[in-house]
């Protein structure tokens, strides 16, 4: 197990474990390994565990710790999580889900597809092929409830965020920002380059599990026609 991480307080009621600050499957596997071990340990006092690209943030209840432990809460949590940090790396294939998400890349939904194709000297079909030809990892959820940050897209697709964010992006819009791809679960302002839209609800508060994607999931995009899109929505 790689011990190349640091643990620091993140304010007075959380701590952050950070690994080498890069977007890579190897680093993220370590993040998810510790995350999954922490979940099985069912530790007391912990309110939230937030996995990201190369970090885990642990939010804890200071008052609960101090009611039961005669010690500084940060020190207590740090020693409680120790076993998860030294746990052996469980091979990833035993854990992850593969989600196939249908996406319609029609220009009426993929608002930036034409501009991106022109900028990169590719056809729109090339962009769609590149986007659908590989499997992505959900590195983290953030920004909005159920917004998956996935990567890494083919270098030829990488596109910086738009300088002027759009005021309203439709729910289900699939976008690219830098080397990442993501899906807007709700209508929202945003700066990602929109190349398509999925009819799948990424966020539904009425469901017991309201978010479609979870950290560590694998995602493959399946191209569908506009007709299929309207049938599925």
């Amino acid at each position: 197990m790689n011990t190349d991480y640091t643990i620091n307080p993140l304010g007075d009621h959380s701590l952050i474990i950070e690994w080498s600050q890069e977007i890579s499957a190897a680093v993220h596997d370590q993040v998810m390994n510790v995350y999954n071990h922490l979940l099985t340990m069912q530790l007391p006092y912990i309110l939230d565990i937030i996995p990201a690209y190369a970090s885990l943030t642990i939010v804890y209840d200071i008052l609960l710790v101090r009611r039961e432990q005669n010690n500084n809460a940060f020190t207590t949590i740090q020693s409680l999580i120790g076993p998860a940090l030294t746990a052996p790396l469980v091979h990833k294939t035993e854990k992850h889900r593969l989600l196939e998400i249908p996406v319609c890349y029609d220009p009426s939904l993929g608002l930036d597809l034409a501009t991106m194709a022109a900028q990169k000297g590719m056809s729109e079909a090339d962009i769609i092929d590149l986007h659908t030809s590989q499997t992505y990892t959900v590195y983290m959820l953030g920004f909005l409830p159920g917004f998956p940050y996935m990567g890494k897209v083919d270098d030829r697709l990488a596109t910086p965020r738009q300088k002027k964010p759009r005021l309203n992006i439709s729910a289900g819009s699939v976008g690219i920002a830098g080397g990442q791809t993501g899906i807007y679960p709700l209508a929202s302002p945003g700066g990602w380059n929109i190349i398509g839209q999925t009819p799948v609800k990424m966020f539904d508060p009425a469901l017991e599990s309201p978010c479609y994607c979870h950290p560590g999931d694998e995602v493959k995009f399946i191209p569908i026609s506009l007709r299929e899109f309207h049938k599925m929505i």
């Binding site: 995350y35 939230d48 909005l144 950290p215």
Partner: peptide, 8 residues
Amino acid sequence: YGYQHLGI
């Protein structure tokens, strides 16, 4: 609490 890993 308990849902921040989902962006909530």
